[in-house]
């Protein structure tokens, strides 16, 4: 059991983006992307509180974004039904994919950033070939019967969660699709860092931990509140805690094993913490609430 050290706010950034829809660390956690309701994506260094670049070109609210593994490209998706591939340095859109019939809610790169996987309100998941100039999706998954809420991509798997109360795990290696019925709307799905469990934020104010192999429920985490918000969750770098935002403006740290709330971070008062992302390797958490993002971490003692 790893002892939790108290996390404190290291920095607070006012993004001036009306509302931040999603906040994402880049591959090594030095930068973060905020997707705003003002149709822009902003690239920040949250540790030093510097705005690096603004990416404008979407026709509507940006709902999700992801940075490529070499941090040279950004892929983003928006309510304008399009997916845009950005060049980080120039800030210009490289490609715009218009394959979805509805707002695109979530997007992820694969491991080598050769392909982007996007999920949409039109119930489909599209695979986009980022390498070639192909404009059409390489493959479209139409299994879901309602909005895709989140996507996770591993080296050979794609996990999608949907409002139709199912999660689907597409195994590219085996050629199988495993769908699990959850019984509640799944607002966000995540995989533990060891890749053995799903962490599913459900609309019934719980987070459920499932075993990937068997589909059995391992644990349920309760305490936070989600009032029709698509709240996200995260795991910390050691797989010891599950982190989740709440509609009450707090961030909950649950112990993975004991399912107890070990820590509450207060981000704001009664404003839902819709998006959060954990640093891939270090104990940093970034949370977004309205147009404010906060970086949480352990204060360095020697300074």
């Amino acid at each position: 059991m790893v002892e939790m050290t108290e996390l404190t706010t290291l920095s607070t950034i006012k993004c001036k983006q009306q509302v931040v829809r999603a906040v994402r660390f880049n591959v090594d956690g030095t930068y973060c992307l905020t997707c705003g309701a003002d149709k822009k994506i902003k690239l920040w260094n949250p540790h030093r509180q510097i705005l690096l670049k603004t990416y404008g070109g979407h026709g509507n609210e940006v709902l999700d974004a992801a940075g490529s593994c070499d941090s040279s490209q950004i892929i983003s998706c928006s309510t304008d039904k399009s997916v845009i591939l950005w060049d980080v340095t120039t800030g210009q859109p490289l490609r715009r994919y218009r394959g979805h019939a509805g707002p695109v809610t979530c997007i992820k790169y694969n491991e080598e950033s050769t392909m982007a996987v996007s999920g949409s309100i039109d119930n489909t998941v599209c695979f986009w070939d980022v390498i070639s100039r192909r404009q059409e999706p390489v493959q479209v998954l139409k299994d879901a019967k309602d909005t895709i809420t989140s996507i996770q991509v591993t080296d050979h798997e794609v996990l999608t969660t949907s409002v139709d109360s199912h999660i689907r795990l597409y195994d590219i290696r085996v050629g199988k699709m495993i769908s699990d019925y959850i019984g509640h709307i799944v607002t966000y799905g995540n995989l533990t860092r060891d890749g053995q469990c799903y962490i599913l934020s459900c609309a019934d104010n719980t987070i459920k931990l499932f075993d990937k192999e068997t589909g059995e429920l391992l644990n349920t985490f309760m305490g936070h509140e989600c009032i029709d918000y698509l709240l996200e969750n995260a795991v910390n770098e050691k797989d010891s805690h599950i982190i989740c935002g709440s509609a009450t403006g707090e961030v909950f740290y649950y112990d993975l094993i004991s399912s107890k709330c070990t820590q509450k971070l207060r981000h704001s008062d009664n404003k839902p913490v819709v998006s959060l992302n954990h640093h891939p390797t270090d104990n940093f958490l970034i949370t977004a609430c309205e147009d404010e993002i906060k970086l949480w971490g352990v204060q360095a003692m020697e300074e």
Binding site: Y170, G175, K176, M177, S179, Y181, G215
Partner: peptide, 9 residues
């Protein structure tokens, strides 16, 4: 609750 279907990538 689990269903497994073949899927061809």
């Amino acid at each position: 609750t689990r269903q497994t279907v073949t899927w061809r990538p």
